[in-house]
């Protein structure tokens, strides 16, 4: 069975066996179903077996944090092989074979279906759109008065908590996405934020998009203070909030160009904060001007 989805304007196809349990993991993607299969950003197929990849050559191991997924990347006969585990200690749960343009992929599930499908889709989406003015972010996004406000920060900083504080205290706020929204620079230069099928622990899979009001980098502190970030500070805060294989020059160039256009046109702030209502109000009053 083949289904087509469209996230942030990028279409992709997913092929998996009819009535496979894996389709049960695709519920978050249902708001993103489309009919049109023209001009696909990528296509992905689940397979029972991958070719024998002996002779593969290890390129790099990426692991951004102890509790973040570990990805081992190999070159095998001119295509990429990725083996992915949910943490630095866990066994490999999924293998992915993909061409170097990240257009056509096959994956084989070794362990958890949920982890495998989520990870493979996100990787393919991020890598295949890296040169298309698109960033798959690690962020929580709240919408207020028709604009999206992105909260960035290291894992455990309180991005989701800050969204909940806006929603619980400031009238008219709603959550767009709690973990992995998509930022896109449009042809006319406008920066928009899109909901996605990936939202971390919060089930919030909304096929909606808004112009970006501001980007706020959060840090935990003993008191609430806010300031506008310099260009370089904003660039650096964004840089660690999306991923990609930056050693692949075209990908790094694409990500840089998008990041530069975003930080030179969207107001970016640094919020040192406590997890309280005062932090939400201080932030809102400054970033919504």
């Amino acid at each position: 069975m083949k289904k087509i989805y469209q996230v942030a304007g990028h279409r992709f196809s997913v092929v998996m066996p009819d009535s496979h349990l894996a389709w049960g993991e695709m519920t978050p993607y249902e708001p993103f179903l489309v009919e049109n299969d023209n001009d696909l950003a990528f296509s992905i197929e689940m397979v029972d077996a991958l070719p024998d990849t002996s002779g593969k050559h290890k390129i790099t191991v990426s692991c951004e944090a102890p509790d973040a997924p570990r990805i081992v990347l190999y070159d095998w006969n001119g295509i990429w092989l990725m083996e992915i585990a949910p943490t630095s200690e866990a066994p490999m749960r999924v293998c992915l074979l993909v061409d170097k343009a990240f257009k056509k992929a096959q994956f084989r599930v070794l362990g958890s279906l949920r982890f495998s499908i989520g990870t493979v889709m996100m990787l393919m989406f991020a890598f295949s759109t890296a040169q298309k003015s698109t960033l798959l972010m690690h962020s929580s996004v709240t919408v207020k008065d028709g604009k999206g406000y992105l909260f960035l920060g290291k894992s455990g900083t309180g991005k989701s908590t800050h969204s909940r504080l806006w929603i619980g205290n400031i009238p008219g706020c709603e959550l767009l996405n709690d973990d992995n929204p998509v930022l896109r620079v449009m042809d006319d230069g406008e920066v928009r934020v899109y909901g996605s099928p990936w939202s971390g622990k919060t089930p919030c899979y909304r096929n909606l998009d808004y112009p970006v009001g501001a980007i706020v980098n959060l840090k935990q502190a003993k008191a609430n203070t806010i300031r506008q970030l310099s260009l370089v500070e904003a660039y650096a805060a964004m840089y660690v909030s999306f991923s990609g294989y930056r050693f692949i020059k075209e990908m790094a160039d694409g990500l840089h160009a998008t990041n530069e256009r975003i930080v030179t046109s969207v107001p970016c702030f640094g919020l040192d904060c406590l997890p309280n209502a005062e932090a939400a109000w201080l932030c809102y009053n400054n970033v919504s001007k």
Partner: peptide, 17 residues
């Protein structure tokens, strides 16, 4: 990398992963 009128040096190669 050029950033508006500013410049940043980013560690992007495998040598500096």
């Amino acid at each position: 990398r050029t950033l508006g009128n500013e410049f940043v040096l980013t560690a992007e190669g495998l040598e500096v992963s």
